[in-house]
Design a protein around this nucleic acid. Sequence first.
DNA 1: TAAATTTCATAACCTAAGTCAACGTTTTTA
DNA 2: TAAAAACGTTGACTTAGGTTATGAAATTTA
Lengths: 194, 194
Amino acid sequence: MTTQILQSIKSIVSLNQNEEEAFVNILEVKQFKKKEFLLLEGQICDKIIFINSGCARIFYNVDGVENTFQFFFAERWYTDFSSFLTGQPTIENMQALEPCEVIQFKKKDLYQLYDTYPVFDRVGRILAENAFLSVSKLNQMLTNEEPEQRYLNLMSQRPEVVQRIPQHYIASYLGIKPESLSRIRKRILLAKER
Amino acid sequence: MTTQILQSIKSIVSLNQNEEEAFVNILEVKQFKKKEFLLLEGQICDKIIFINSGCARIFYNVDGVENTFQFFFAERWYTDFSSFLTGQPTIENMQALEPCEVIQFKKKDLYQLYDTYPVFDRVGRILAENAFLSVSKLNQMLTNEEPEQRYLNLMSQRPEVVQRIPQHYIASYLGIKPESLSRIRKRILLAKER
DNA sequence: TAAATTTCATAACCTAAGTCAACGTTTTTA
DNA sequence: TAAAAACGTTGACTTAGGTTATGAAATTTA
């Protein structure tokens, strides 16, 4: 159950037996059905989530319109770091798109680990840095790429998104309507045939 | 010269005299003329910049097209945290839009401070956290807002941008062409008249 | 301060995305 | 497994932004 998350941690730092046990002790395994919410806007995000299996999307809700901005698959870490840091309610929603098994742990337990085993400071810092790099990259794409180009890049760089995620969520991720994505796909198909 | 940056630091942590002197010792004051580059793509961003006066923009260069994604004024911190962390060359450009006086310090000097005075760990962490919050907010805007709405928000939330920054840079920040911003401004004006 | 450059606005036309509606297919659920 | 819901495509039409070109005003620079 905890094999994957331990492997992920150990790719960052090496843990001795005490440290590993202490870490495993704060872990909680949870199952979510399709469409269930792993995180709901308004909640305070006081946990860090690691996805064992399944996939989920993160979206903002603006006047009833859901703007998807990221997809997460197995082996990926997630927290709304803004809410996690500030203690303010989150405006992000995380929803299972397939049945999900996740491993999560609480902020307060992590902070206790920080105090007992300094090695976890480094884990926390690196997770935070990765979160930063991930959002920065997303912003780069949003700033520099048109929807059609983003879709082409998605196909080549993250094929599992195009294969596993329903198109209307991908459209939302690209900042366009499902009808427009449908047209883009048609354009791409026609271009290929020539 | 160093009054503003010290004040900014002291709003985060309190420093004793030794710590303050050690910090002031790593500071370097620099002047930039209008249009000069404080950071150029391809460089490794191994410094943190604090703006004393003037203003600057950050942009990506994509096939000769400059995509502006942030403006900085006095009292603001800047580093390309991605390049700073990874040691990879930056793809960000920082260009003075007005004559600028900045205070900067090097990564290696900061890391020495970390080792000597633990209080600076907290400074570094909080600057990093703020950097994250800032990119998250940008992501929110890019994901949730249309150019016209973003311009209206810019006018009310950051009037100094609209007042001091040439329109074609603002257009780029909004992800549109100067001609389109001109039309948006006209639309807003007409709407006001009614 | 005169010339050069930059900035901004506007017009005409083009293009991609939005909107609305219809319809067939796939998936979910009772 | 039958009915309901969700999903994806297409068409007709609208709209916002892109492109190209022109010119005036403001700012910079020599």
